[in-house]
């Protein structure tokens, strides 16, 4: 198995005239190709900072991040994101179709191929027929599906999700989690997800990285050895699931 992402001794500080905030301290971790990894930690630990570093929106003050051996300078190629705040990450002036089409314009696709990609992605997230709707005409869960479809349409080899289901209701959340599992089954994209929901992390991941402390460092890496396929009905009742969530919970709370 090859390494998709290598985070090597990354530290991050924010400097303001008054003070320096040290957010990450010597974080190292490797994501294997095709894995689903969740990053959990107490709120304000620097999870979002890590996302910004991974997506090239910010540069680490020390260390480096390699994606398939290439150091991140700008927004990396082949990376797609799904952010928490779908109302602010989908463009309200574009229809669902055009929202998905926008990142595709820079790929070498002709019109028919682009159309094909959009349709396929919408079918994958169960939103076929919504092409000409505007995002704000859809429910929150449906908007987040559009976000996922937009990410899938670029055929990424790396998917980064920042609290993707934090703004939807509980029922929709379960549906979207299962959608993510299905997507993973269908495409096998390496996925990195930041979440504060430990159950969600355990339910979806191959591995969980626990960040803890100020500045944050990797406190533990937990392998989730629950077999696939997983389901909301059975997996969450599994003893192994309960043990793992208790373990991760303890670490996030600093109890272990």
């Amino acid at each position: 198995m090859t390494t998709a992402i290598a985070i090597n001794h990354v530290s991050m500080e924010y400097k303001t005239p008054k003070a320096t905030t040290h957010v990450l301290e010597n974080v190292s971790y490797e994501v294997q190709d095709g894995h689903f990894v969740s990053i959990v930690g107490p709120s304000g630990v620097g999870k979002t900072t890590l996302i910004r570093l991974l997506t090239g929106l910010a540069k680490p003050t020390a260390g480096e991040i390699l994606i398939r051996g290439k150091r991140i300078e700008d927004a990396p190629e082949g990376l797609a994101v799904v952010l928490q705040d779908y109302t602010r990450s989908l463009m309200p002036w574009l229809t669902v179709e055009k929202n998905i089409a926008l990142p595709l314009r820079n790929q070498p696709l002709n019109k028919a191929e682009r159309k094909q990609r959009i349709t396929e992605s919408l079918v994958e997230v169960g939103l076929e027929g919504s092409e000409s709707k505007y995002p704000w005409q859809l429910s929150g869960g449906m908007q987040q599906r559009v976000s996922i479809a937009r990410a899938l349409a670029v055929r990424p080899n790396l998917l980064v999700m920042d609290e993707p289901f934090a703004s939807v209701d509980a029922q929709t959340r379960f549906d979207l989690e299962d959608l993510v599992l299905k997507v993973r089954d269908d495409f096998g994209i390496t996925t990195l997800m930041v979440t504060h929901d430990i159950d969600e992390a355990v339910y979806l991941s191959d591995e969980i990285v626990v960040l803890y402390g100020k500045p944050a460092a990797v406190r533990d890496i937990v392998k989730i050895d629950i077999p696939f396929p997983r389901s909301q009905m059975t997996t969450r009742n599994d003893h192994r699931f309960a043990d793992l969530r208790t373990h991760v919970y303890g670490m996030v709370r600093g109890l272990e």
Binding site: T55, L57, L79, L83, R88, S89
Partner: peptide, 26 residues
């Protein structure tokens, strides 16, 4: 919106697209 700009950057929109598809409509 900064989230919107971030989204555009991550999806590697060109400067031109950022201007015409994102900043101006917004």
């Amino acid at each position: 919106d900064s989230t919107l700009l971030d989204t555009g950057n991550v999806f590697r929109l060109t400067k031109f697209q950022m201007m015409w598809k994102l900043r101006i409509p917004s």
